[in-house]
């Protein structure tokens, strides 16, 4: 029995009268690579943003190492520092170089020394293959390079779980591969990951758990074999076949 890092119970989220998420339940254990798939507007990204408290859920609870982070007053920043996030649009700090991007969180949030932070940053920048670019500003990089730096920035905080919000959706096709291969490596190293993605091949080959969302609920979930080879529900099959056609 592996430790449950993250447990979501009866989570719901509404924007005004529009209910985006309804009664979501799922668990992320240490070392899990969970892919969340589904059509646009099915609530995948909102779910991820709720988990990182970028959106406040309307009801339900999120347990992080058994502690409900929604009932705890304040401390959202501290929780976020332990849950990394990689965005669709990179969100690198434009006023800093690549290296500074990976250092600032460590020195300001984790209060680590500058030398130590620099070593840590270099370690992860080397891992994603961006070490030669440490002096560049984000505007000087390609999309794929920016996303790899964003992954290094998140990793430098040594998060317990790393959330990916459609990390390759804003990239040119030829750059998707470099980001996915970094993510593959990370999964291979046992990093706990929660990935919202349209890359079905990645979801099928890399993750050990696949969640299919539809209309704000978890429609079906299971191992990649179950979902991709023998889905139980008609809608899942329909969604996947639509994707395979494209």
């Amino acid at each position: 029995m592996r430790d449950a890092i993250l447990q979501v119970n009866h989570l719901s989220k509404s924007f005004g009268t529009h209910q985006v998420l309804r009664d979501i339940d799922f668990t992320v254990s240490a070392g899990d690579v969970t892919s969340i798939i589904g059509a646009s507007g099915s609530g995948k990204s909102t779910l991820l943003r709720c988990i990182n408290l970028l959106e406040i859920p309307t009801s339900g609870e999120i347990l992080f190492h058994g502690e409900n982070i929604l009932s705890r007053k304040g401390g959202a920043a501290k929780y976020r520092s332990k849950v990394g996030m990689v965005f669709q649009s990179f969100n690198l700090f434009n006023n800093m170089t690549v290296l500074e991007n990976c250092i600032v969180g460590q020195t300001k949030v984790l209060k680590k020394g500058r030398e130590e932070s620099r070593e840590q940053a270099m370690k992860f920048l080397t891992k994603v293959g961006m070490a030669p670019f440490i002096n560049a500003k984000p505007r000087q990089l390609s999309g794929g390079q920016k996303q790899r730096v964003a992954i290094a920035r998140a990793l430098a905080m040594e998060p317990a779980v790393l959330l990916f919000d459609e990390p390759t959706s804003a990239l040119d096709p030829e750059m998707v591969g470099e980001v996915l291969s970094v993510m593959r490596d990370l999964a291979g190293e046992g990093l706990t990951m929660l990935v919202v993605t349209h890359e079905m091949a990645f979801a099928r080959d890399v993750s050990n758990h696949v969640v299919f969302m539809r209309d704000g609920v978890i429609w079906e979930e299971g191992g990649p074999q179950e979902i991709f080879v023998s889905p139980r529900k008609e809608e899942t099959r329909e969604f996947l076949s639509r994707f395979m056609e494209r």
Binding site: L54, R80, F93, G105
Partner: peptide, 18 residues
């Protein structure tokens, strides 16, 4: 300034002031 910058900062645990 792009709201994504704020989200990026919040995602690594920065407070509003930071």
């Amino acid at each position: 300034v792009d709201p994504g910058q704020t989200e990026g900062a919040m995602a690594i645990g920065m407070t509003h002031v930071q």
